[in-house]
């Protein structure tokens, strides 16, 4: 399937001929096919929204782009320090560097680390990039405020927060730094309408600054608000036969 280059700019993400299937060795080596021959380009300022039925592989595709899943075939190239890095073939060190500076990922689940306070969780991506802790803290504070997370929660570890509260911490952690590429997997799933709007505003602001985004959104309103393009993953579905 051909991809159009909407504005002729160098894509931030370039996926070519991507195939993913899982092999479960301990269940008689059955193979679970997901997708194949998948091509996708995302340019700066674009927000490509994955659509397709539940279970079709939207999340899987996103994780494969992030390097969380290994590709079975094909390549995923991401712009990093002015050049493309092929996530599927780069060394772990390189992928870690890309994730640290160029490609962010917002999942719907907050991985909770015991005893780390909300503030410390949120500023971690900045500290990892050498930002002064005080400066990082003040940015975190303004972000958490705009997400309307009660100040009483800032010094607490998020383990006991509600789903929506955890989600907002997640959002803050992902938007505190300007990532050129951002992958969003159901970032608004547990949020109420007001908070969803805040997130939409954050997304739009980032897009205006030239970020390239891929998103999976359950919520129709959010989709309509941020999507520049839809991408139907089901059209790349792998047949059971070709899985053999």
């Amino acid at each position: 399937m051909q991809q159009s280059k909407p504005n002729g700019r160098t894509p931030s993400i370039r996926v070519t001929n991507l195939k993913k299937q899982f092999t479960l060795h301990n269940q008689g080596s059955i193979e679970i096919p997901v997708f194949e021959s998948l091509n996708l380009e995302v340019a700066p300022g674009e927000c490509v929204v994955f659509v397709g039925d539940s279970g079709i592989g939207k999340s899987t595709l996103m994780r494969t782009i992030y390097g969380n899943y290994l590709a079975s075939e094909g390549c995923v190239e991401v712009q990093h320090d002015g050049a493309f890095v092929d996530i599927t073939k780069a060394s772990p060190h390189m992928v870690a560097a890309v994730r640290r500076r160029s490609m962010g990922y917002v999942s719907q689940f907050l991985r909770v680390i015991p005893r780390i306070s909300t503030i410390d969780l949120v500023i971690e991506p900045l500290l990892g990039n050498g930002v002064d802790p005080e400066e990082a803290k003040s940015r975190a504070v303004s972000l958490l405020r705009s997400l309307r997370l009660p100040e009483a929660l800032w010094s607490l570890p998020p383990a006991t927060f509600s789903g929506g509260e955890q989600q907002r911490v997640n959002i803050a952690r992902s938007f505190i730094r300007e990532y050129p590429v951002l992958l969003l997997d159901e970032p608004t799933a547990s949020l109420d309408a007001t908070n969803r709007e805040t997130v939409v505003a954050l997304i739009k602001a980032a897009l205006d600054k030239g970020a390239a985004m891929i998103g999976i959104f359950h919520d129709q309103d959010v989709r309509d608000a941020v999507a520049t393009r839809h991408f139907d993953v089901s059209s790349f579905k792998m047949d059971m036969e070709s899985a053999a």
């Binding site: 899982f22 092999t23 060795h25 301990n26 994780r63 390097g67 969380n68 899943y69 290994l70 772990p92 992928v95 870690a96």
Partner: peptide
Amino acid sequence: GLTDQVLDDPQHP
């Protein structure tokens, strides 16, 4: 490989 990859998408039996 990267920790999250090895634990989320293990390849070896």
